[in-house]
Every structure is written in C-alpha cells, then in structure tokens.
Design a protein around this nucleic acid. Structure first.
Lengths: 336, 336
DNA sequence: CTGAAAGCGCTTACAG
DNA sequence: CTGAAAGCGCTTACAG
C-alpha cells in the first residue's frame, strides 16, 4: 500500500478550503490572518493524519531560502574536520538549519563543481576551507550577498569572514618549546603549498629558529603522492641525508603519520634519536610509545565562532568578522 | 559589479526566441527537435558568455529528479565510513551523480529527520547504514519506489538491497586464529546492540569458542557513554575481574582504542599478558608497539558493489540485490 | 524548425 | 476570516 503523495492542493480540496488558508496555517500565520482556532486545529490534525510534508523544493524555489548551510572541507575523513562538522551540526540544528558536508580533496575543480551544485539548489550559506585558486568563486558568492565564512585558511586579498587558529604563533611556540628543551637541529616536514595555514606554520618555524640562531632544515612534500608510499620514502631520505637532526616538526597530522612510519623503518628511536611534534592531535597519539607531543586546535571554540559569525549573516547582517584562536601544545614524551 | 541572475526567460528574451527553444538546446535536444545548428551555437555561446546556469531547484521540481544520492552513515568521522564515502563519490561522479553524506550518530530520530529533509528535496537514492528501529522508514522509501541500499547492517525482516561483509565468518575466523595460537581464555568486548553487524560478530565469536570447548567471557558496553571515560573504566574493570583472560577480541575500532587505553592504564603488556584483535584497521595500528592484529573490510570492493547495485535502481530496475563480502585478518604482533 | 501554454508545489499580496 | 491568482524557473506535449 504505497502512501499517496499529498500536496497542499489535495489538503485544501479534501477540507473544502483554499490553498492559501492551508499554507497560512502550516506556516504558523493562522493568528495574524485571523483564521479560527477551530479550522486551524482541523487542518493541523488532518495534515498529521495523512502525514503530509510540504515539498521543500517548491518552498525553496518560491522563497529563495533552503535552511541549509554547506560545510565544504578539504577532507571529511580528517578527524579535525569531522569533529568540527559534528559540532557545528548540533549548533545549526538549534537554529533550525541543516548542515550538508562535502570534501574538496583540496582540488579547485571539485570545489567549484560543488559550489555550482549547491548554488543551483539555493543553499543559504557556506563554510569553506578553500583550495588554492578559489578567490574568484568566493568573490562571486560574496557579490551575490551569499553568506560565506572561510575556515582554517583564507585569502589575504579577499575580504571575507574567517575563523581559524593563529598558525604562525602555534608553530613558533612549538618550536620554541623544542629549542627550550635543548634541541639544536630541528627539521620541518611540511606540504608544498601556498595556502595560508601552511605558509604561516612554516613562517612560525623559521622565525623561531632564526631568532635563536639555529639553521632551518626544510622538507616540502608534494600533495600529490599523498596516499602513496612515496611520501614515506621522501621523509626517510630527508632524515638520512640530514643526519644531524635531533627533532622534527610535522605541520599536519598525515605528515606525522607518514613520518612515524619512516622513523620506524629507519629504526630510530623517539625521542632519543629524534624528537617529534605533530600539528593536530590524534586519538591514538596518547597511546603511542612514547606518546606524541601535539599542537591541538580548539575544536569547540572554532565551531562556536563559525556559527556565531554565519548566523547573523544568514539573517541579512553581512558584517565581516575574522577570528584567530590560539592552539595548545600538548606536551608528551616524544619531546623528552 | 554583482552578476545579474539570468533565467531561461531572460535568455529567450535577449535572443528573441522562445523559452522552449532555449530549453531544448540546453538539454541537448536541439537535434531531435530540428533546431538549426546556427541557432544552437548562438544560444550556447550566449549562455556561456553570460554565465547562465539553470536553476536546479526548478529543474528538480519539474522533473522529479535531482541526480543526488545520499550516503547516510553512522558517523562520517569513522575512517571506515569516510573511506567508503570517498570511493563511492568518485564512482558516482563518473555516472553524473553527486553524493551528499550525513551522519546519524546511530540515533533513530536524527536519521528520520534526515530522510525527511532529503525526501523534501527529491533525492534520487539512498545508501544507508540504518539505526535500530528504522524499518518503517526504509519500507516507506521502498513503497515509493525510491532506490535504497542498506550498508554495513540490515533488517532481516525487511526485503532490501544490502552490501556488507560476512561479519559472522570474519569474527569466527579471527577467534579461531587466536585459538590456533593457543589462547584459551578469549574475552569479547562489544557494543550492547541488536544491530546485525554486532550480533553477527558476537555469534561468530561464541561459535568459535563453543566449538573448541572454550568458555566465552563477554563484556557489552553501552553506546551512550561512548566518548566518555566511562567506557575505558568499564573495560579496565572487565579485565581486572576476569584475570584469567589471555586475549580480547574487540568488535569495533573505537572499542579497540578504548581497550588500548584501559590496557595501558593497567600496565598490562601486549601480547604477553593479553593478546588483541581489532575489528577494522586504523592507519596507526601498524605503527603501534606491538602492531595490532586487525580484521580489514574490503573498502574498494564494498564501494564498487554499492554503486553497482544502486545505479540500475536509479534507472528504474528495482531488483533487490544482496552482497556479503569476506573480510581479511591482518596478522600482526599483538597476537604473538 | 519554433512557440504558447500547462504544470511541478509552494507563498503571499491583494481583494473582499 | 477566506479565496483567486500571480509567480518562483524550469520541462515538455501539443500545435503549427
């Protein structure tokens, strides 16, 4: 027994009233249109009984609003992003918005296609971790007065709302901590990327070392062979060719994991041969032998700010707000 | 300079032709409606020049199709699910479908709300890891001839397409492996759940032990205090009260992680005091000291089957297909 | 080759 | 208190 699909017209017909009346009642405008309580109740009861749900597509087409916010991240399988997703989702629900998330894989083309997809569906707002080269797309959204908040990274030349951490300071603090511990030859393993979160982390590292008269030793890994074995071999080679290294600062979680594999293959021990600091924590880092020192981003606080910035924009207040939050260094045994 | 929003009507007006003609050309139906190549080119060029994109909302409302498949998982931050997501996404793109994913947190109410959300938006198909108690919702979709493929778990009473692994066999194999290694007191740490993937894993464990005349020792953990410390303490208590245990089989990845924390707190060593087998691998398990033996699900193959089953359904062939694939035991040092 | 028109399912200004 | 009607932006059967 397939359920019949009801439309507002069917409801109106069955009840011998007009579509308008049904619509007003459904949208809670019965009072202001002075529709009798009796009729209101009758309609509501009937709607419930037949299980009628308004067609959102038609509603959106008519009103231009969808009550949907897109959360476009680099990679939803990265725990950092999926944890943020979870947090903003609950906050969105409280405000009657839904969150749809999607991954760009840091590919410009994919991000652009997704924006096209969602624009055609009249999504109300965007929280985006942009890929390189998306400046125009962001500008396009902004010029159409669509709320956009950039997350994790930003474009210095584009005037947008933004939430992220102070990557420069976090990286500098972590390296100063290593320096304070007496490490003298600190290497950097980072991604070859012009994105702000990466360049800021690199700059923080560089300044910390330079201010202490230490010599930076940098390995930039290609984003391309990310899941391949190549990256591990790259890091192995880096370690072997720079035998003086006594510590390594990894600028992303995945690089840390690859680095740990490389170190294991080389049979170096942590922290005796090599101290380790990771950017972003991992549930398992605390269980490692030794536990891994990591820079932790304030997930709760980032999520909170994201929603506090996008909600007013959704209501039409297009003020631009930028927030940079501090990260915390979780000191564990991989650094002494 | 905000871009003007073009509609098909604007295009028709500017070019002094009818909406129909524009629509035919845009939908690649110029030929069959014998529209001149010259006009076709003119329209296409103009459309490109002004950057016109059809409103998908209106298209979907009119055609009843959205070219969107929803992938509703228990928790997208679980690497198993996010890896599947990534795989089916690329396969969907090849077939001109988009994937939208969302998490139910294994809460029936959330899953139902999401289905309502997507139904109102005329999503074309659903891949769902159902929560308990969703039988009716699944039946409702099926009765409306909407393609649904269940994933990872299923409802024995509901006749639906399904893709998953043979959880019973996988669990049995893993425990027989432990038994073969000489372990005599194998404990089970699992989730208190009536879902098939969980009961099957438990049954596989039980049968393996019973067939070898060993005594099962089971700990069922509440799903509720999942992220809390409680679960770790539960497992600690389980280990302490069952001091004879020489091995533990964990039925999910998260339970394994909590278990590892518990074991670390108790200062037991793996595998000397306690051998460990995990359900689902983790990038870091191979780096552990010792590396953790894990049951691995065939991500690629699962994804492939998922798409191969849903695509024909999307084209109207509603045949029901069920697929159970084998898992692989990655033998590592946590079990000798 | 091409156009006028109906209709998808809603919302809302306007009229009574 | 309530209804007829326009319109959101499309697609497509029908007519010429």
């Amino acid at each position: 027994m397939a359920k019949k699909k009801y439309s507002i017209k069917d409801i109106a017909n069955e009840l011998n009233i007009s579509i308008t009346t049904v619509s007003f009642i459904l949208n809670g405008k019965a009072k202001e249109n002075r529709i009798s309580e009796k009729l209101t109740k009758k309609v509501l009861d009937y709607v419930k009984k037949v299980g009628y749900k308004p067609n959102q597509l038609a509603q959106s087409l008519r009103t231009g609003k969808s009550k949907i916010i897109v959360f476009m991240v680099e990679d939803i399988s990265n725990p950092f992003f999926s944890n943020i997703a979870r947090n903003i989702e609950s906050k969105a629900h409280e405000n009657d918005y839904k969150i749809i998330y999607c991954s760009t894989d840091n590919k410009k083309e994919k991000a652009q296609e997704l924006i096209r997809l969602f624009k055609g569906r009249h999504v109300d707002g965007y929280i985006i971790t942009p890929t390189e080269g998306m400046e125009e797309d962001i500008n396009m959204l902004l010029s159409e007065k669509i709320p956009v908040v950039l997350f994790d990274r930003y474009f210095p030349e584009v005037e947008t709302s933004y939430v992220g951490i102070n990557n420069y300071q976090a990286a500098k603090d972590a390296n100063n901590y290593l320096i304070g511990k007496g490490y003298k030859n600190i290497g950097l393993v980072t991604l070859k990327s012009a994105q702000t979160q990466m360049t800021d982390r690199m700059d923080g590292y560089l300044d910390a070392l330079i201010e202490s008269d230490l010599r930076p030793v940098v390995k930039e890994v290609d984003y391309d062979n990310f899941n391949s074995d190549g990256i591990i071999r790259d890091i192995e080679k880096f370690i072997v060719t720079n035998d003086q290294l006594d510590a390594i600062f990894f600028t992303t979680n995945y690089l840390t994991i690859s680095g740990l594999k490389a170190i294991k293959r080389l049979k170096r021990s942590i922290p005796e041969d090599l101290a380790i600091v990771a950017f972003d924590d991992n549930v398992l880092f605390s269980l490692f032998d030794p536990p891994i020192t990591a820079l932790v981003q304030p997930i709760e606080d980032l999520s909170k700010n994201l929603m506090e910035i996008i909600l007013p924009q959704l209501k039409g207040n297009m003020d631009i707000v930028k927030k940079e939050l501090p990260a915390t260094l979780l000191k564990r045994a991989s650094t002494n």
